[in-house]
Design a protein around this nucleic acid. Structure first.
Length: 461
RNA sequence: GGCGGCGUGGCCGAGUGGUUAGGCAGGGGCCUGCAAAGCCCCGUACUCCGGUUCGAAUCCGGACGCCGCCUCCA
């Protein structure tokens, strides 16, 4: 049984799939107007972890995540750079997938672009107009939030206080300050699609409704995103579905923010670090490990110290993988459960799994895994035959979470290999000063030298 | 102003009414020709003030501090 905090219910609830054994997930993807920042990295890692975990637990997961390729910010950027909107969108979508690849985030089952769904959006707006759930003003079509009786479900506060807090809008002719644009009429030079109610482009909240319902069907299982999307974005998506009498997401889940010096990292605050900057100077797996070390709903401080901390922990895991010659798992292929574990190992796997089943408690699961690493090293030191099986189980769980441990040795050049050979030779003769001198030479070349029962082993420092 | 969340050892970060979280860093030890790696031990933490309780870091109330949402935002 998988349990997950549901934003609408404000409690951890069992995830009850619409269809037995299958889980459909929609995650709001990026607007491709700029490079992704650490916050994008976190939400994609969090939901990738969850997706992989569901797969490991035997679910058939259909995972849809969109690309918003038509938006005010794309238009602004295109104007500023004197290029087409499509050029901006294409460029940053490429950057996006490149970063996702480096992070080891699985490709969505389907990754729809908003511009591919314009017709369906136009139909939706037309229907809302017919039902009087929407109305036309001179700059666009607006949704009337009173058409969604339980509007405010995800805002987690009374409608009245939302109205009171709503920004004073230039459009005082909206029926309610909470009403939002479904369709924006094009100004000269802006991208536009023809419709009966006026040429223009969709509002942001409309695309996700039609794409989620279109690709996952009514009553799909889970809608995810960053916490800042809960209101108004997800609220507004839901309102449209409700007004149409269509069943929307059964569960809502939101991840916490990435913080920078105690403040939310965001484009508008200008305090963001781009994902590429991090990936250039760090093993991408360190970010995944860092994300796993805090609960997905908590704020996460990503800075040089916390990243370095994660990198050091990762070194230890890689050394462990090398000791047991473990294969690297969890790349493009999600990991499934193994069937042949001893009772003892199976108990450990099940206990760790139950922590992940319960609201994706990755920090607690990691604690169990690190304990098991120490235990397995001890078993191996004692020459216990069960150590390799433990090591494989640990590797499988890390792989299931998309963290591939690297057990394979690094490529070493011929000269270094020769130094290793000569050092083993010297050690065989108990010529310690020569052995130490050769170790020094290897260290000069940036290797960390370790002795093992198989002789000299070296790894990159 | 309205609403919500958080405050854990040097740092990060789970958890729970009574029993070791874990990682990183630091100290000591074992092992090792010396190192490295590994293993073991250690600091005995829970913002403050009251209250409930045999017992609270964990429940309740208050104070202080921090953060978020209410506005584009992952």
């Amino acid at each position: 049984m998988i349990r997950l905090f549901d934003t609408a219910a404000q409690e951890v609830r069992e995830l009850r799939p619409r269809d037995e054994g299958r889980i459909s997930i929609y995650v709001c993807g990026p607007t491709v107007y700029d490079v992704p920042h650490l916050g994008h990295g976190r939400f994609t890692l969090v939901w990738d972890l969850f997706r992989r975990w569901l797969h490991f637990r035997g679910f058939d997961v259909r995972f849809v995540s969109n690309i918003t390729d038509v938006d005010d910010k794309i238009i602004q950027r295109a104007e500023r750079e004197q290029v087409s909107e499509a050029a901006v969108a294409t460029k940053y979508e490429e950057v996006w997938w490149d970063s996702m690849g480096q992070l080891g985030v699985l490709r969505p089952t389907v990754a729809p672009r908003a511009t591919e769904w314009i017709d369906t959006m136009v139909e939706l707006v037309s229907t809302l107009l017919e039902r009087d759930a929407a109305y036309v003003l001179d700059d666009g079509v607006y949704f009337d939030v009173s058409a969604a009786p339980d509007y405010g479900l995800l805002a987690l506060q009374p409608l009245e206080s939302l109205r009171a807090g709503a920004r004073v809008d230039a459009r005082s002719d909206k029926r309610s300050p909470l009403d939002f644009a479904l369709w924006k009429f094009a100004k000269p030079g802006e991208p536009k699609w023809p419709t009966p109610f006026g040429d223009g482009r969709p509002g942001w909240h409309t695309e996700c409704v039609v794409m989620s319902l279109g690709l996952l069907g009514e009553g799909f299982d889970l809608h995810c995103g960053g916490l800042d999307l809960a209101f108004p974005h997800h609220e507004n998506e839901r309102a449209q579905a409700v007004a149409l009498g269509r069943e929307f997401a059964r569960h809502w889940a939101h991840n916490g923010f990435v913080m920078s010096d105690g403040e939310k990292m965001s484009k508008s605050l200008g305090n963001f670090t781009s994902l590429s900057d991090l990936l250039e100077r760090t093993d991408p797996r360190a970010y995944r490990l860092l994300v796993m070390r805090s609960h997905y709903r908590s704020p996460l401080d990503v800075n040089v110290e916390t990243v370095a901390d994660a990198e050091r922990a990762l070194v230890r895991l890689d050394i462990f993988a090398r000791r047991f010659d473990l294969p690297t798992l969890g790349g493009d292929e999600p990991v499934g459960p193994s069937t042949s574990w001893s009772e003892e190992v199976l108990t450990f796997v099940n206990e760790t799994a139950s922590l992940l089943d319960d609201d994706l408690n990755t920090p607690a699961a990691l604690a169990r895994l690190f304990e098991a690493v120490a235990r397995t090293n001890t078993l191996a030191d004692q020459g216990d035959d069960s150590a390799p099986e433990w090591a494989r189980a640990i590797n499988t769980l890390f792989g299931a979470l998309g963290l591939g441990l690297r057990g394979e040795g690094e490529d070493l050049d011929d000269d270094s290999a020769e130094l290793v050979r000569r050092r083993d030779d010297a050690r065989g003769r108990r010529d310690w000063s020569e052995a130490d001198r050769l170790r020094g030479e290897l260290e000069q070349r940036g290797w960390i030298v370790e002795d093992s029962s198989q002789g000299t082993r070296i790894r990159r420092g």
